[in-house]
Design a protein around this nucleic acid. Structure first.
Length: 480
DNA sequence: CTATGGCACGGATT
DNA sequence: AATCCGTGCCATAG
């Protein structure tokens, strides 16, 4: 009702409204959370009520997302997935006291509810003396939520009045602890350290180092052609290197690896800490015809709303403050509205998306339905750029626990590639690309010979004449 | 001569 | 408007 009361005054800023709705859409829940936190801190008109409300009827709720009366879970069918906004704890990487004012208590790291810092510290504690422990604690509590160190190390050294060399030693230990690369000042450094550690246990393509060191921006922009040029190799080799990097490294150590490729041993990079997905999909029951349950991360626990006290205070506000307060209220209302809009769009999109890709979600990559953002936009009657934004950078946790980018749902060729992989795995005699074209055609996939070659190299599979007849489907990654 | 990789073009997608 | 992706043609390796 509060919102309604303001809606008249809102009318004149609908353009701003739209603009902000869009920008909220493309944020991941973690990013959105930051935004909300900062708005909350700077805008007195906003208030966070530590109370959840049933998403159906709006009644106060003790746990879950629906009240008992509205609990529709039993109505779900295998056709109709259940999609709702959720505050389940998996979505939150607890990062405890991060108050801007009071982060001067690095000393009592044990008292903090942070998990990553503790986890790292426990690993390296034996190698540290008392002083160094304090430095480590300082560094670890300063990490941002990606596990990177946003402030210069010198500053910490100066603050702790120790030499930079000493601080560096500590940082180095931290970086080599489990999530490898944690505490690095930049994603690039994190990657370099991960390569270094990785190289201790298995061969790493030498060019990967160069790619990260010199071509990182090309890499992240997927400018493989330029990257290839930089490294002096072919484009597809460059792509293979990029693939290797994506598969094995993680520029944001505090996030878990962006799953898939089950043959990756999680020991090294993975840890108790993982990147909280934006969406979690699970089954209601263990059966194959079970309805899907889709939970969309709410960026914050509790409910964000306009503070009623603030509205009351507005009436008898001192004249000179009145304007500023009104502005605050407007911004706050806007944010709340946009948030609702974002949630609504996400729910609608996921509903349809999970319905279409049900087979893929349950039975794996071979069943991915080729789907474009455009067609989804059309059936939802949304603009395609809306879908693009809603999809970009989001992470989904699948029923099998893997965390993948939401964009994977729109892969145009994944099903063909997996069919291809299967064929090659089952082959007794190495099949040439031409043979593969025919076999794929038999399965209903018509692709050109050249395309088969491309898919092969995407999957890191060697050409026929270099494959052995052994049934050894292991991960052949690089051919030097 | 056959199997593959490189490059580049055109249409689809974002 | 920018980018991605499948394909055709040609060069090269085996």
């Amino acid at each position: 009702m509060l919102i309604q009361r303001q809606s008249t005054s809102l009318r004149h800023i609908t353009t701003a409204h739209l603009a902000q709705t869009m920008s909220l859409l493309e944020l991941t829940s973690a990013e959105l959370r930051q935004k909300i936190e900062s708005s909350l801190a700077s805008n007195p008109a906003l208030e966070l009520v530590d109370q959840a409300f049933c998403q159906k009827c709006g009644r106060p709720l003790r746990s879950g997302s629906f009240c008992v009366a509205c609990n529709r879970l039993h109505e779900a069918t295998s056709e109709q997935p259940i999609v709702f906004l959720s505050t389940r704890s998996d979505f939150y990487t607890p990062r405890g006291s991060f108050d801007l004012e009071t982060d001067n208590n690095e000393d009592d790291y044990t008292a903090s509810s942070e998990q990553l810092p503790q986890y790292v510290l426990r690993q390296i504690a034996p190698e540290l003396d008392e002083d160094e422990r304090l430095i480590a604690a300082h560094i670890l509590t300063s990490l941002d939520e990606d596990g990177l160190l946003p402030i210069p190390l010198v500053e910490i050294a100066r603050y702790r009045s120790v030499t930079l060399t000493k601080a560096e030693r500590v940082l180095r230990l931290i970086q080599h602890a489990d999530p490898v690369g944690v505490g690095s000042p930049s994603p690039q450094q994190a990657l370099l350290i991960q390569l270094e550690v990785l190289a201790e246990t298995r061969p790493v393509p030498g060019l990967a180092l160069q790619a990260v060191a010199q071509g990182l921006d090309l890499l992240s922009r997927k400018r493989y052609a330029d990257l290839a040029h930089l490294l002096g190799v072919s484009k597809s080799q460059a792509q293979q290197i990029a693939q290797f990097i994506v598969d094995n490294l993680n520029p944001y150590p505090a996030r878990g690896h962006w799953g898939e490729s089950s043959n990756q041993r999680p020991a090294l990079i993975n840890s108790g800490v993982y990147y909280a997905p934006d969406i979690i999909i699970s089954r209601l029951k263990e059966t194959d015809d079970s309805p899907l349950v889709v939970e969309i991360a709410l960026p914050i626990r509790g409910t964000l709303r306009i503070n009623p006290l603030f509205v009351d205070a507005l009436d008898n506000a001192p004249a000179e403050k009145s304007e500023a307060w009104k502005a605050d209220l407007e911004r706050a209302t806007l944010l709340v509205k946009c948030l609702q809009q974002r949630n609504h769009t996400m729910v609608r999109m996921l509903q349809l998306l999970t319905h279409i890709q049900r087979q893929y979600i349950l039975f794996g990559e071979a069943h991915l339905q080729p789907l474009t953002r455009a067609s989804l936009a059309k059936s939802l009657e949304l603009h395609e750029s809306t879908i693009s934004r809603a999809v970009s950078d989001k992470a989904v946790q699948m029923p099998n626990g893997h965390i993948i980018p939401l964009a994977r749902f729109f892969d145009r060729s994944l099903h063909v590639r997996t069919a291809l992989k299967n064929l090659i795995e089952k082959e007794t005699l190495p099949l040439s690309d031409m043979d593969l074209v025919d076999l794929l055609a038999l399965q209903g996939y018509s692709v050109a010979r050249r395309t088969v070659a491309k898919y092969r190299s995407m999957e890191g599979i060697l050409p026929a004449h270099l494959r052995i007849r052994r049934p050894q489907p292991g991960a052949v990654l690089m051919a030097a």
